[in-house]
Design a protein around this nucleic acid. Structure first.
Lengths: 206, 206
DNA sequence: CCAGTATTTGACCAGTCGGTCAAAGTAAGG
DNA sequence: CCTTACTTTGACCGACTGGTCAAATACTGG
């Protein structure tokens, strides 16, 4: 049984392929219906496998969801980790905004998966938010405070600055339907990068 | 049968009270689990009524959800409607931001109800987004364009300006759990109004 | 080619889902 | 007080839920 030891990677090519198929399908379904709204049957159909076959590779519905979330958490925080405390402050933050927006454009389903989880109270990743996430944010906040005190960027509340970046970039993935409904034909991601760069430049310029 | 004609208001006090109880309970449940993740049994328990009794007042699960959404849509757009094209441009926009943020603080469940619906593809309110919402936004965008061309506010993409306002204000309701996890003890809504006012002042100042 | 292992699935299970219905209970007006 | 309309509910329905299991099938190394 391949799912007995969750920590080690699958061995065979079949296991690798099917786990990938399942996670891909699960991402699709979980991101559009939330955890409780998603069903194993849906995921099975989407993956082109039988339901018992899903449960041969993963112990439970929750196990699939957990795998997705924890696997994603790392990737998701990469753009923030890449902020360089030795770089030029404004450039570093603007580059972070760019990376984050690009992430939303490339991986909207991943963004919505997190959005669903957090909007619904984050019952399954609250620990990661209070731990891993908070730790990284605290670290970067210290860097931003440093930049502020050196007069390199305007004096803004560092935590809320970060919330702004998350909020504005993820909005284009999470609320994509609404944005498109309002814009009509116009493509959201055409003007968004330019607009956001402009906005954060104004916010950060001392 | 009180739910036969959906357009007219309930007559008796009992009907009024029970419909309110149900909608209140449904708001609680739908906003934390999304449409598919919510169950009638949960809503019934939350409302202190039996499940068949729910369905005596509302035709179906979807009818309850629809009633909530359409009832909310109006209230939700009020802060934007209140923008006065004859007022002082920057004041008007900043006041709109304030009202919107206050809305998120006072009615976080309503905000999450919409967030759930839209993140999940807005299958039940897409028409309202493309119609009512788009119309109102288009109207206000025209006003903003006017202000811009008069040099009263900085030249920013009006649609994306509005998306910013929605995004930043609703973030504090929809992602409340995450914001609190990162901030620790600090109360989000203490600094948020000040920060947002500061941000939009910078964005709008010509 | 064959034995042993990895993979797949049909049949099935108990619990829950949204929803129905007839019957019982309650309120109100004359 | 009694009729009539409104309200409530226990019992129930078929469909679906996450999950199990034994048997069947495919794959692999020797």
């Amino acid at each position: 049984m391949p799912n007995e030891q969750e920590t080690e990677r699958p061995r065979t090519r079949i296991q690798q392929r099917n786990r990938d198929l399942i996670l891909e399908a699960a991402l699709e379904v979980f991101s559009t219906h939330g955890f409780r709204g998603a069903t194993l049957d849906q995921i099975a159909i989407e993956a082109g496998l039988s339901k018992p076959n899903l449960l041969y590779y993963f112990a439970s519905k929750e196990a699939i969801h957990n795998e997705l979330l924890s696997g994603l958490m790392d990737t998701w925080l990469d753009p923030m980790r890449a902020m360089d405390s030795n770089g030029e402050p404004i450039d570093e933050i603007l580059a972070y905004v760019d990376r984050k927006l690009e992430m939303s454009r490339m991986y909207p389903r991943e963004s919505r998966l997190f959005a669903n989880e957090i909007v619904q109270g984050a019952p399954r990743i609250l620990d990661a938010l209070k731990g891993e996430l908070k730790q990284l944010v605290d670290e970067k906040v210290a860097v931003i405070r440093d930049w502020t005190s050196q007069g390199k960027i305007a004096s803004v509340h560092p935590y809320h600055l970060i919330f702004s970046i998350w909020s504005l970039t993820q909005h284009y993935a999470d609320f994509d339907v609404q944005v498109r409904a309002v814009l009509g034909e116009e493509e959201p991601f055409d003007a968004a990068p330019v607009y956001l760069r402009e906005v954060f430049l104004k916010i950060l310029t001392p």
